[in-house]
Amino acid sequence: MSDTTSGRPGTATAAVPAAVPGDLGWDLGMVLRGYQTRFEAAVAGMPAGIRGFQVLSAVVHKDPPNQQALGAHLAIDRTVLTYLLDTLVDAGVVERIPDPADRRARKIIATASGRQMLAAYEERVAAAEADLLAGLEADDARDLGLLISRLARNVHRTQPGASPCEAMDNL
């Protein structure tokens, strides 16, 4: 007996619709929209919002050697980054210090207050991400995260100047 829903003889699995070219973009856009809505709510009150969170997170977790490397990592224009950093410095969450390797450059470091703020917002972001993934089994959610991370690193490797912020702005 052949099951036409799976195309394999003797199987009785549920029908899986064939992917239509272009559906991946719609699917990713919907997931991104759901993520963005939750992420914005999770970082409400953070100085400079989403970008402020991303800058502070990169400073703490990636420890870029200087302001230029920070901007390159986040694909943020240097003039925009300067304004973001001004906001974060004024809020007391980061400091600009001379780069030990090049006194003309500045290294961005998190203050103790900034690290505490980041920890609190990371809990909120983690809860928002869990909410987005709540419709998946735990193993599927973990696998999805790993696959998206691998795919993102591959895109970044082949398009190192690509800006995820710009992609979101153009949705």
Rank of each mutant, 00 (worst) to 15 (best):
Arg51Leu: 14
His73Gly: 14
Gly34Ile: 02
Arg106Ala: 09
Glu40Asn: 10
Met168Tyr: 14
Ser6Tyr: 04
Ala44Arg: 11
Asp86Gly: 07
Ala19Ile: 04
Tyr83Glu: 11
Asp86Val: 13
Asp23Cys: 03
Val125Phe: 13
Asp169Met: 12
Val20Tyr: 01
Ala138Lys: 15
Pro17Ser: 02
Asp23Thr: 06
Val155Thr: 13
Val59Tyr: 04
Glu166Asp: 12
Asp63Phe: 03
Pro164Tyr: 10
Ala138Asn: 09
Leu32Cys: 06
Ala119Val: 11
Val89Trp: 00
Ala91Leu: 01
Gln36Tyr: 12
Val60Trp: 09
Val31Lys: 05
Arg142Met: 09
Ile50His: 02
Pro47Lys: 04
Gln67Lys: 11
Ala126Val: 14
Val93Met: 04
Asp90Leu: 04
Ala119Gln: 15
Thr82Asp: 10
Pro164Arg: 13
Ala134Thr: 14
Thr4Asp: 10
Gly34Glu: 06
Gln36Ser: 08
Leu118Ala: 12
Met1Lys: 09
Pro65Thr: 10
Ala101Ser: 05
Asp143Gln: 15
Val93Cys: 02
Arg106Ser: 01
Leu133Lys: 11
Ala134Asn: 15
Gly22Tyr: 01
Gly161Val: 14
Ala167Asp: 07
Glu122Cys: 11
Ala19Met: 01
Thr4Lys: 13
His61Asp: 08
Gly10His: 05
Glu166Cys: 07
His61Ala: 10
Phe53Glu: 03
Met46Trp: 02
Met46Lys: 05
Asp99Met: 01
Val89Pro: 02
Pro47Leu: 01
Cys165Asp: 15
Gly34Leu: 01
Tyr35Thr: 05
Lys62His: 08
Ala14Asn: 00
Phe53Tyr: 12
Arg78Asp: 14
Pro9Lys: 06
Val20Phe: 04
Pro64Arg: 03
Arg150Cys: 13
Thr11Val: 04
Val59Gly: 00
Arg157Thr: 15
Lys107Ser: 04
Ala141Phe: 03
Asp99Cys: 05
Thr87Val: 05
Val43Thr: 08
Arg104Gly: 00
His61Lys: 08
Leu81His: 01
Asp169Ile: 09
Asp27Ala: 13
Gln116His: 09
Val16Phe: 04
Gln116Ile: 12
Ala128Pro: 15
Cys165His: 09
Ala18Thr: 00
Glu166Asn: 07
Pro64Asn: 07
Ala44Asp: 10
Leu84Ala: 04
Ile97Cys: 00
Pro164Met: 11
Ala127Phe: 13
Gly145Lys: 09
Gly45Met: 13
Ala14Thr: 03
Gly25Cys: 02
Ile109Lys: 04
Leu56Trp: 02
His156Asn: 12
Val94Tyr: 00
His73Lys: 13
Leu151Lys: 10
Gly52Gln: 03
Tyr35Cys: 05
Ile76Asp: 09
Arg78Ile: 15
Lys62Ile: 06
Thr79Arg: 13
Val43Asp: 08
Ala58Trp: 02
Asp27Gly: 06
Arg150Phe: 12
Ile97Met: 00
Leu74Gln: 05
Arg51Gly: 00
Arg150Asp: 13
Gln159Lys: 15
Leu56Asp: 05
Ile108Phe: 02
Met30Trp: 05
Asn170Glu: 11
Tyr35Ile: 07
Pro100Gln: 00
Gly71Cys: 07
